[in-house]
Write a protein that binds this DNA or RNA. Sequence first.
DNA 1: GTCTATAGCCAGATAGAC
DNA 2: GTCTATCTGGCTATAGAC
Lengths: 200, 200
Amino acid sequence: MKDQSTEENILKAAISVFQKKGMAGARMQEIADEAKINKAMLHYYYKSKQKLFEAVFRQAFEKFAPHINQVFNSDKSVFEKITEFTDSYISFVMENPYLPNFLIQEINNNPEFADLFFGSEIAPNPFRFKKQIAEEIEMGILKPIDPKQLLLNLFSLTAFSFVGTGLVCGILNLDERKFKSMMEERKILIPELLINSIKK
Amino acid sequence: MKDQSTEENILKAAISVFQKKGMAGARMQEIADEAKINKAMLHYYYKSKQKLFEAVFRQAFEKFAPHINQVFNSDKSVFEKITEFTDSYISFVMENPYLPNFLIQEINNNPEFADLFFGSEIAPNPFRFKKQIAEEIEMGILKPIDPKQLLLNLFSLTAFSFVGTGLVCGILNLDERKFKSMMEERKILIPELLINSIKK
DNA sequence: GTCTATAGCCAGATAGAC
DNA sequence: GTCTATCTGGCTATAGAC
């Protein structure tokens, strides 16, 4: 936790502030305060707010992509993938609650910038998953379904609660404790719901 | 479309800009340009950026709440509610694609401000819906389910695609045309999925 | 009610001492 | 590498003419 280089300290503080406030809402001074260093150091190490933001975005994208790739590229069955993704994704996001929303907002705000990442090697590629679905339909394990709709259902059910936490808790009258216990329940409920809907 | 009062023009422009950029990212100059009037007029009519934002937020909340209340307070059966909400909500959001995300972001950023709305009369109240679920379980129409999890599933499945459009289209490789046609399909798929999972 | 001009502030960025 | 002091630009807001 200590003995980190200043550069690592800055990045860590920047992650915290940018993920909560977004590019437009974040302040360099706040990042400096969080890192307990002088504001000038941010520019010494990262040149500009934009460059620092890009480092944070890259880090967030790289942390997030493996969860998707686990679904797209592992050798597990579709049922196993759904179960394991749900569990590991919800656990992951409970530890990093601002990450999905940060990615979503900044991708929406800078589509051209985001395309840089979707074009790269670390970007998730649904090709193998589509093939797997086709095979399992062929084998009579799955009903004939659209793989993209299945993925969209899976992502929606797991991610939305964390992106819209405030609205969800407001409408459903949830405090933090109830919210968390519902998320734990969802680790079971979501795979059940999805698997039942696609198994032949 | 024309002959609107300046005040209406301003609000309309402010809605457009605030919903796309959020409070932190919006610029008074951009709102003035969009309304094709002088920047000083914004302050003449709405005093400050904050006040103008609040007018936009209120408008958005009031436009959104009836969709939720339709589920919470109408006399339809649970199955009908699911079907009708999905259809009307997706149609509504295709016409107002920035609205759900705007509400979500600003509620996340100003929880205390949002509580003002969740405490008010126009705020959706899940009380009747919970009672209805209990009754339909009692009658043997529904499996024993948690009404809050059902609502969360319904909101997640319908709203997430519009909140995370950029991320979703990036991961699933969708252009605008494909995205829209998937949303049309979802008007059927979502009620099917949810109703099958809860009917006894 | 509508405009021009500008005040005043705040945030990002840099110069320069140490 | 780290700090203090300061520049610069941009944005909200207002004063005041018409």
